[in-house]
Nucleic acid binder design. Structure first.
Lengths: 124, 124
DNA sequence: TATTCATATGAATGAATTATCATATATTTA
DNA sequence: TAAATATATGATAATTCATTCATATGAATA
């Protein structure tokens, strides 16, 4: 089906429908990181990280700023946090049997004040 | 990249990252519709509509109920409306030059109050 | 300015997703 | 129960997307 009808809408959600990009967003919730740091933390090729940072920035999910040689990426918390908040609410209420999104773990942590280890590193 | 790390999260957003499915959600905002009605309104193959309804229902974005021969699908307004509300807010603030999502048209009315006091945050 | 470090880009391969067509199943009515 | 109606399913073709590798660009430092 043609996608012009809701180009922006489609772009918005398709940018979020990728494990690498979700992992990047999750990582940036901890604070800004440069490309090499993201690459090392997620254990993925630097070029692959760069390729994935581009759509995230284009959609306004992240911002970037160069500092000396490095370019630091940071989360657009204003809208990204609410997006995941709704996702968390939705998935807990309507998809309770499904596995948990790690992104929800962090939100859950706040609620119940219990620390779990960040398993988003355990992929690859 | 493996996707186990956030299976539900990935599923959630990938289900929304499809023009046909977005059009279905948009249509269902007007009220419940059966498969044939959706198919006719969107001018798409019936089987294609059925194929796309499945992931939407599986993710809890829509519900269905059989009435006589027909199966009526309805929107899960509780979470879908807030999702699009955030999308609208985000895209108007961070992607202003891009085309508008049709979904945003309906929400635009209420937009100005919520820009200062975003009620979509009330989910948690 | 030559070198090193950091990031970005492009092309091509491979992987995943989607639409299509044919057909199957399910429900109602004659 | 046969026919008509409504929806679902499966296999394949078509399309879109992601990853990789090689390399280019850009910024800082020696």
């Amino acid at each position: 089906m043609k996608r012009e009808l809701s180009e922006t809408c489609y772009l918005f959600f398709s940018t979020l429908s990728n494990p690498t990009r979700l992992a990047i967003l999750e990582l940036l919730r901890k604070g800004e990181k440069n490309v090499t740091e993201i690459s090392n933390t997620l254990n993925q090729e630097q070029s692959m990280i760069s390729h994935n940072l581009k759509p995230l920035e284009r959609c306004g999910f992240i911002f970037s700023e160069r500092k000396k040689r490095k370019r630091y990426y940071s989360l657009n918390r204003e809208t990204v946090e609410p997006i995941f908040k709704i996702f968390t609410y939705h998935s807990e209420k309507y998809c309770p049997e499904k596995g948990k999104c790690l992104t929800t773990e962090h939100l859950r942590k706040r609620r119940y004040k219990e620390a779990t280890n960040p398993m988003y590193l355990s992929h690859q």
